[in-house]
């Protein structure tokens, strides 16, 4: 133990102690620094248009790419679709995740809890692309869903390659994240508080509305932020379940970078996405306050 302390004294003398915190922050700062560097490079390339004759970026700086994004109706539609998709995904995911995690946290039967956890995690392990394939099979015209509908006499309907299918896929994909973020928030609510609400005259619905949801608010907001940003920037679900007709921003960026090789336009779209995501987070934080997220400070 003594030897260890002596070594420590040489490597990190006591007078350096006040800087220990900064030293520990270094890896994170490096990582963020790299990201910022990348962002600057993106910003730079977004200011050059692609010269179609030489397939090289233009020499001079121009806002042409941004004009394209703003003026081209296709991109407007894609941005609007991404935002709407993200908002709907957040709404439905939280709607499903709240009761799911509530039952998981509150059930007195450990068997029920285990079943809920396993059901939650199995698809989690499989990965997004494989899951999207699974959904393709289930929702296909001859898939399980349509077969089931057929049993009650409904004609096969097209469940895939439309906007609801993408949102469905996203919700299905996001549910474990949301449950994982909500569970600790719900665990933190003492059971006694709900018993108290009941003894004061609240039925379970009132108790849920006036006590559980307000007390779980930090968890709900955190989960909403994570689900919202992940959905807004998602690639696989719109690509696979949308079948090319339901592109989100990430798909458009992919196309620019890897199909048309128009780096400038791709970069402009990417920066738009960064701005959109930041605005979304900023709005949520300004409405609810950083304090509710447990980040200190008052509302």
């Amino acid at each position: 133990m003594d030897a260890l302390n002596r070594t420590l004294d040489i490597v990190w003398p006591a007078r350096m102690m006040p800087y220990t915190g900064w030293a520990l922050l270094m890896p994170a700062l490096l990582l963020v620094g790299l990201l910022v560097l990348g962002l600057f490079q993106m910003a730079d390339s977004s200011l050059h248009t692609l010269d179609r004759s030489t397939f090289l970026p233009s020499e001079n700086y121009t806002l042409e790419n941004y004009r394209t994004v703003v003026e081209n109706a296709t991109y407007g539609k894609i941005i609007w679709r991404s935002v709407l998709g993200a908002v709907l995904t957040v709404f439905f995911t939280l709607l499903l995740a709240l009761p799911y995690s509530y039952i998981m946290v509150r059930t007195s039967s450990s068997a029920v809890r285990k079943v809920l956890l396993v059901t939650l995690f199995l698809p989690f392990f499989i990965g997004q692309v494989v899951r999207a394939y699974g959904l393709l099979i289930i929702l296909g015209t001859t898939g399980v869903a349509n077969n089931a509908l057929g049993l009650v006499g409904v004609e096969p309907i097209r469940l895939l390659f439309n906007f609801p299918a993408v949102v469905f896929g996203l919700v299905q994909y996001m549910l474990p994240f949301a449950v994982l973020m909500l569970a600790p928030a719900l665990t933190a609510i003492p059971r006694e508080t709900e018993t108290a609400a009941a003894s004061l005259g609240a039925n379970w619905l009132q108790s849920f509305r006036h006590v559980v949801i307000p007390m779980a608010k930090p968890g709900l907001i955190g989960a909403g932020l994570v689900v919202g940003t992940l959905a807004l920037t998602d690639f696989a679900m719109p690509a696979m379940l949308g079948g090319g007709s339901q592109d989100f921003i990430a798909n458009a960026i992919y196309d620019q970078f890897f199909r048309t090789a128009d780096q400038g336009l791709g970069a402009a779209l990417a920066l738009m996405l960064v701005v959109l995501g930041s605005v979304f987070v900023a709005i949520v934080i300004s409405i609810f306050g950083a304090g509710t997220l447990g980040m200190g400070g008052k509302k």
């Binding site: 003492p190 006694e192 108290a196 003894s199 004061l200 007390m215």
Partner: peptide, 27 residues
């Protein structure tokens, strides 16, 4: 439970932290 006329003070009080004192009493 919510139809009974029993007031209870719990060991850990179980006050509602997201409400003011008056809102707790008004609940």
């Amino acid at each position: 439970p919510h139809r009974r006329s029993i007031g209870m003070v719990f060991q850990r009080l179980a006050l509602f932290p997201h409400m003011t004192a008056a809102e707790n009493v008004a609940f």
